[in-house]
């Protein structure tokens, strides 16, 4: 059966982001015991794979790179209906930038799901927001990629009509063969986890792999393998400014519009 691979990233639950803060000395994010959840867009990606499973009998594999305590988020993906999950977890992988992350995930996919037909990712992670990992995975695996995917039609399970949402225009592409797709939230409404799924997930394989298990080039993983570095991380200072524009109503309105244009609000 064709196989869909879904990349899943555990992130701090956005509901509790008011509790996030930065250590002013180290620049490290203080997570303060905030629970971890699946990056919301990744659930939309998983839903596409699960529909391929429901409609065309595809197999669904979930992959992730994260600390070992995040297995619960992968168990949730299994409870939604995925068949198996692989977690790359190793101290050597820590501090990876997007390129090193994509290299690691591509290595995991080559090792555990080499015959994939489709790799599905969220268009971005809510905590990192780079949108870089999906195209980089495609690069490492030598397959095409389509980002900003807002609609997928799979009439026969072989040919896919994919809508790429470019905001000002929509690009409709038809595709066959292995591909990486990065999806937006418009693509579907992810299913809820049901209790039977939770029980079934306990019997599904969830394997944690080290860097050595994946035969990775150590110079390309983790912080050492990352060509980009975070130089500084800071919370922007948000100040309110008040200015009273005086004059006749028409003049005030015109001036207000000018000012809003100047600050990029219009």
């Amino acid at each position: 059966m064709p196989e869909a691979v879904v990349c899943v990233k555990p992130i701090p639950d956005p509901k509790h982001w008011d509790r996030l803060s930065l250590d002013p000395k180290t620049g490290v994010l203080r997570r303060g015991g905030i629970p971890t959840v699946i990056n919301p867009l990744d659930k939309h990606a998983l839903e596409i794979a699960l529909q391929l499973k429901d409609n065309f009998g595809w197999e669904v594999t979930v992959v992730s790179m994260a600390p070992p305590e995040t297995t619960q988020t992968l168990r949730e993906a299994l409870a939604m209906g995925a068949d198996r999950a692989f977690l790359a977890s190793d101290r050597l992988l820590g501090g990876a930038d997007t390129l090193a992350t994509a290299y690691t995930l591509a290595g995991l996919i080559k090792k555990k799901a080499p015959n994939f037909q489709m790799i599905l990712c969220g268009n971005m992670s809510l905590d990192g927001s780079t949108s870089q990992v999906a195209p980089q995975i495609a690069h490492f695996l030598g397959v095409p990629h389509i980002t900003h995917v807002s609609k997928i039609e799979a009439k026969d399970g072989i040919t896919f009509k994919v809508t790429m949402d470019l905001k000002l225009a929509q690009l409709i592409l038809e595709h066959q063969g292995p591909v990486v797709l990065a999806v937006t939230k418009e693509v579907n409404l992810p299913r809820l986890v049901n209790i039977m799924g939770i029980l079934a997930a306990e019997k599904k394989p969830l394997e944690v792999l080290s860097a050595a298990d994946l035969d990775l080039d150590l110079s390309k993983i983790g912080q050492n393998g990352s060509p980009t570095r975070v130089r500084n991380l800071f919370m922007p200072e948000i100040k309110r400014r008040r200015e009273i524009i005086k004059g006749e109503p028409d003049e005030v309105a015109e001036e207000l519009i000018n000012r809003l244009h100047q600050v990029g609000m219009l």
Binding site: Q72, R75, E76, L192, V193, N194, I198, L199, A201
Partner: peptide, 17 residues
């Protein structure tokens, strides 16, 4: 247990939706 934690999360999502 992990099962019970996942149950809480999924029922909370169900309740919200």
């Amino acid at each position: 247990s992990e099962r019970e934690e996942l149950l809480r999360k999924s029922i909370a999502e169900f309740a919200q939706r």
